[in-house]
Nucleic acid binder design. Sequence first.
DNA 1: TTTTTTCTGTAACCTTTACTTCAAAGCGCG
DNA 2: CGCGCTTTGAAGTAAAGGTTACAGAAAAAA
Lengths: 288, 288
Amino acid sequence: MHKNALVRDLLKEKQSELTAAERKLSAVLLDDSLLSGLQSITRLAELAEVSSPTIIRLARKLGFEGFSDMQGAIRNEIGARMKQPLAKLDAQAPTDSRGHIVSRFIEAVSGNINRTLERLDLAEFDQVAALLSDPSRRLYLLGGRITRSNAHYFFNHLQIIRPQVTLLDSSPSVWPQSLLDMDADAVLIVFDIRRYEKELEKLANLAVAQGASIVLFTDAWGSPIENYARFCFRAMVEVPSSWDSTLAINFLIEALVAEVQSRSSVQSADRIAALEQMIGESRIFRSN
Amino acid sequence: MHKNALVRDLLKEKQSELTAAERKLSAVLLDDSLLSGLQSITRLAELAEVSSPTIIRLARKLGFEGFSDMQGAIRNEIGARMKQPLAKLDAQAPTDSRGHIVSRFIEAVSGNINRTLERLDLAEFDQVAALLSDPSRRLYLLGGRITRSNAHYFFNHLQIIRPQVTLLDSSPSVWPQSLLDMDADAVLIVFDIRRYEKELEKLANLAVAQGASIVLFTDAWGSPIENYARFCFRAMVEVPSSWDSTLAINFLIEALVAEVQSRSSVQSADRIAALEQMIGESRIFRSN
DNA sequence: TTTTTTCTGTAACCTTTACTTCAAAGCGCG
DNA sequence: CGCGCTTTGAAGTAAAGGTTACAGAAAAAA
């Protein structure tokens, strides 16, 4: 019975029946594709911070005679996986012959991120990081219908890291007020993927006219805002879905956050500490 | 010295210096990509039809302390070969010897996504997709300080695809009003990664008490809300940054959006068409 | 051939391993 | 609070592990 089943699947399948220590162990095993299961039971026990009996109990729970038996199965499993040309998400395809949506999705997404990075100019990335770390700059973030979430995510982090960060409202009617403040020190970070929104372009145009610098995040085809942008990141967005994927854009955002944080760490340490305290004090929904 | 070199290369390199029995052993090892070297020395000896001392002598000849030492190297080697990164941005490293932040980031992120998917239960994924596609369900989304953006992103799409989707306000003081409506038909989608927020747990608890089902997105360590959740997705979030990465979570969201969309496509087609029209009519910032 | 050198397996060695037992710790429940 | 129950690791054991020493086998040199 267990001869056919893969240890990995068994682990996932019986996850709910596992105890706390067993789940800890299971996490360690799954964490590196069962590879840690090839060590001696003692080492594995130390690595997973459980005792060796726990390991044996888990092995038995999965249907093996003991640890050695399971280890043999793991070795076979890894061997089988290695002989496959490309180790991609093993398509078990329970419902669909062309593979589960998750399998197809991960394939597309990894391609998107890869190609986005291929086109990424690291020097440009560094320049943008420097720009966003400059405390004398004022940052404004703006997104479209869908990309507003990305703008919000970026804003969320930047606002904690440094002062002078503004997320523009989703309603264009209140933009003019912010526009007033955009001078040569201002940086407008715009997200605009298809379908490109005319309002965004209009605002970008006006901002540039006032001297602001624009950092644009767009898709492979390029928003019309490219013409006004000082810096431009193009990300791949196509996936097997009715919707575009902004994962590559999110990747760029997170990498920028990391870099801006490390460049601003000295100044932002106090800022974050102060924030933590304010959060603690202003907790409304008391949890006592 | 031999720390860097691969066992496989060492074997081929020193082939000429090997004795007959050693060469027989080497052939067996190379034959299945060193995989047979993961067994016990006794089994390997039987398989290669040599004695165990021969194995030790070969290991020493290659520069290892003994069989165990070589076996460890083999394990690492196989591990390295298996976890071929989703993307290995060929390190150009212009400024930093340890690689550009983007390179280090992509490595961490691809690992995170891969490991998140390994732990993902596809059946659970499908169940959640079905749940979210059910028009008789009312959906409520809730995120923490950082994950609010993810909740917003999810909301943004779900709201277009189907009716009865609500994004809970970031301020807990107005939650009770929404809580009133959460009965057995309600689905509360919660995002809670470290540092876990007590307010979220409290709300989840109350929602469950009213009969609502909870779908939880959390990190590898697991939010306390797990105890109340009907479905739980655990994503890996660690990256070389002061901040956690929610990219794996975003991946799950996008995959779910794709699946929910395809399941609801019939009903949602009209909805999207209607929406498009409304957007066209209500454009404020006219582009003449 | 004999002598010398190199190679290889057997048998002993001690260490580590996988596994069992058992008691303490944790946990839910009345 | 104590009561069961489950979960967990410490201690102990028998077996298998890796390693060593040594002697015979094979090959090379004389």
